[in-house]
Structure formats: structure tokens, C-alpha cells
Design a protein around this nucleic acid. Structure first.
Lengths: 232, 232
DNA sequence: TCAGTGTTCAATGAACCACTTGAATACTCG
DNA sequence: CGAGTATTCAAGTGGTTCATTGAACACTGA
């Protein structure tokens, strides 16, 4: 079975397998493409929106999206005047999450950068994530999703209330004063929840930031709620 | 809070975060690097071994390993005359597994290539993975790890017996005739288990191939056994 | 049908990357 | 210490990728 010939075809087989795996790997080799995928993990979006959110030209975004499409990580569908991109399936989100997790555990630089940035924004003390997660799951606290509405619609933590950050100020009155509030946003690198907590505390609420996003939630195998528009 | 200035530093922050994430992403952008990481997920190895197993020059392997090291995915340690590389921590294995899973679910080509190759090696019918997994977990079957001994030592499915494929023939007598046998190897792209099953069946054993490897096992959150040398 | 808009394509140049070769380190072990 | 070996480094080459620009395409809505 280990003749010269079979060894060669063996190598060819391996080479083509790893070549395929590299198609997916290459898709995540450019910072901007990772950012686009991150955005798409929050909600489906058009090319123009993605370009604006990630700070690149539309043509460039389109090109990056083409690469992601060819790696089958995202799909595109024409919706009226716009082309709407979305992640191809749930596995893609988990893949991105795995990448992020490795980077977080292995790259000290990443933690340094994040901590600096949070401190500059007067971030509250880092919280014990897992314990908070437990209380959120047990519904012991009021959970606020401070991302834009469309991201909430595309998927949110069950029981969470959508209060986009810009609207938080005018909707304070409708929030419960006596119950503890937990705010979350896109994830550990998003400061919206930090700002939300800052405002809430200033107004006398008991509030905490959860640094997990919907992706972290899903990666733990918990259910995600979609579409429903629970509002305060 | 959304002044021009704060928006700019915001962009800078995001850019540096995604740049860090891309460090990890780039590490998996070359087929050969993925292959090296795959090999390292099975067991720690020296540069020379890795070069030989992946069919590249030592200098080239060393260079790829440097990239993996700079992305902090692997660590190197001098052991006697050789430098031994190993995956930096368990998360890295899960990251590679996530990449592989996405590629498997999304890339039809990968499945086609694999099926062709297995058929050429007279692979038995594809098995129902999850049901087999249950029976392995319940220890209803005799489990054979047909990889080289050092990979078995680095981590194997609990209860599995190490019978490296080349030694299978001479150790047939020591295997139970009446109990069903399940063989596994490095994973879905490795044909050792296929060949083992072929031989076993020819000799009158009831045998099946499990296409999961240790990585798939771990990704499901199951315990992995190390070091111990259970032998038939 | 035709203007207008969103998206993609094609071509360019600069930067980067994979692999080779040959030399230089850094060890170990006699 | 000095020979021998494993590994890494440095330089060069051909190929690939990224961002930009301007044009082309596809589709909508009047």
C-alpha cells in the first residue's frame, strides 16, 4: 500500500485538502475582511453600509466581500436597490469567534490595546464575566441590548430589551429603578455598553456591563432570539 | 461623545484590534502552515519531522513555523539536539477545528475531493458519525487508535487501545473476536482507519471506521486521555 | 425608455509572501 | 574544546494581494 505511486497521490490529496482549507484561512488574513465579517455577524448589511462602517471605499469593500463570498463565508442577495450580504451559516460565526478567542488568549498586545482604550473612555472595573452570564441566564437582571435596532432584530440574548445607545437618554424613565441592569453590545471591543452603563449609573441606576456579545452567547451553546421586538 | 476627534481614535482602535486578529488569521492563510498546525495538533514534533511529514524543505518549514510562532499559535522548545514545536494551548486546536468545520460545511469541493480519495482506497460506506460516537462514549465497542504511538501518547480517546497501523497485522490475535471494533486515526482526511477496518474485516472481525479524530472529540467537550499506554 | 443609483469589474503600482539557496548560529556530545 | 548536526537567517525571485481609480454593468423608478 505504500508504493511510490500511492505515496505521491497521497501527497496530492493532502495538498488539495489543505489548499481548500486555506481558502477559508485566506479569507481571514486581511484586517478589513475580518472587520467586515464581524459586522456581518451582528446583522446582514448592504455593501454601502459595510464600507461606511469599516471606513473603506465601496469598491474596496465590494472586492473584500468578493473574497469572502468565494470562500463561501458570506452570501449576497439583491434586495430591491441594494445587495445585502450575510454570513453563510451559523458555523461561520463560530469560526470567527474561535479566531477571536485564540487572539484574546494568546496575544497580550490585544488585551493591552483594549484595556488602554477602555480606560480612556472611563470604563468601569472589569467584571467577572461568567458569574454575570449566569445571572443573565437566570433572568435575575434586566438585560439591555444597546446596539442598533437591526442588529437586535437579527439576533439577541433571550429576554433582552432593545435600547439603542442614542435613545437611552430619553427612555430612562421606562427602565426599572429597583432591578439591576446589565447592558451588552457587539462584544468585548465595543464601548457602547460601557457608555450606557456610565449614563445609567449617573442617573442612579444599578448597572453593569457584560462584555459578551451575541456571538459569545451562541458559542456557549445558548439559544439566540430573533425578530421579536421586545421594547421597554 | 461623537466628536470628530473621538471618531478618529475610535477608528484607530478598531484598526489595531483587527490588525491583531489578522495576525492569527494570516497564520492560517498558507496551505502548508495549516498542514503543519494540523500535524502539531496530533503531537509535538521537531522541525525535521514536520518538514518530512509535510513534504517541504527544512528551511521552509522553519520559516513557516516562525510565522506560526509569531502569531503565538505554537511554541518552540529545545529538547536535546532538536527543537520541539507544539501548539501553544488547547484553544489553538479548537480554532483549527473551527476552520476545518467551516470548510467542511461550506466547501463542496472539499467533500468531493475526500470522497474520491476514499473511494479509490476502497473505503467502506460512510458511517453515521454521531451514533457511532455515542457507542464509543458508552464503551460499547473496542476502540482502536491506529496512529503512531507518539500521537496516541500526546492525547487519545479515553479507553482507546494504541495499535499503530503498521503493527495491526501482527497484533490481530490479541483483539477480541466477538466484540465490535471501531478504529480512528487523525481525522476525516486520514485513511489509516479505513485501511485498518479493511484488514480487520478481511480477517473476520466486525469493524467500523470512525471519521472523528481527537480534535473532533475535544471540540465536543469530551475528555482526552494522555500519556497512558494501554496496549492490546 | 432613460436618468440615476448601487455594485462590480479591470487595470495599475506598491507591498507583501512563499520558496530556494547558501551561509551563519547555536547547540550537543565526544 | 572542537567536530558535527539541527535550526535559523539573509538575500533573491517569481508570484500574489491590497488599495485606488475610472469605467462598466444591472437594476429601479419615473
Amino acid at each position: 500500500m505504500n508504493t511510490e505511486a500511492s505515496t505521491i497521490t497521497h501527497r496530492q490529496f493532502k495538498d488539495s485538502v489543505y489548499e481548500q482549507l486555506a481558502r477559508v484561512g485566506k479569507a481571514m488574513a486581511a484586517p478589513k475582511r475580518i472587520e467586515l465579517l464581524d459586522l456581518l455577524c451582528q446583522a446582514p448589511r448592504t455593501v454601502e453600509t459595510l464600507a461606511e462602517l469599516s471606513g473603506i471605499s465601496v469598491a474596496n469593500a465590494s472586492q473584500h466581500l468578493k473574497v469572502l463570498r468565494e470562500a463561501r463565508l458570506v452570501t449576497a442577495e439583491k434586495q430591491g436597490l441594494y445587495v445585502e450580504y450575510r454570513v453563510a451559516d451559523a458555523q461561520v460565526g463560530l469560526y470567527f469567534h474561535a479566531l477571536r478567542t485564540v487572539a484574546e488568549t494568546r496575544l497580550v498586545e490585544l488585551e493591552r490595546i483594549t484595556r488602554q482604550h477602555l480606560e480612556r473612555h472611563g470604563a468601569p472595573e472589569p467584571v467577572c464575566g461568567e458569574e454575570l452570564l449566569r445571572r443573565v441566564r437566570a433572568r435575575e437582571v434586566t438585560v439591555l441590548d444597546v446596539r442598533p435596532l437591526e442588529e437586535y432584530r437579527a439576533g439577541h440574548i433571550p429576554g433582552a430589551i432593545s435600547v439603542p445607545l442614542p435613545e437611552l437618554a430619553k427612555r430612562l424613565a421606562k427602565l426599572p429603578k429597583n432591578r439591576e441592569i446589565v447592558a451588552y453590545c457587539r462584544g468585548p471591543y465595543c464601548i457602547w455598553a460601557v457608555e450606557a452603563v456610565e449614563l445609567l449609573r449617573k442617573k442612579g441606576f444599578r448597572a453593569q456591563r457584560m462584555e459578551f456579545g451575541v456571538l459569545d452567547w451562541r458559542a456557549r451553546g445558548y439559544r439566540v432570539e430573533t425578530q421579536k421586538e421586545t421594547q421597554a
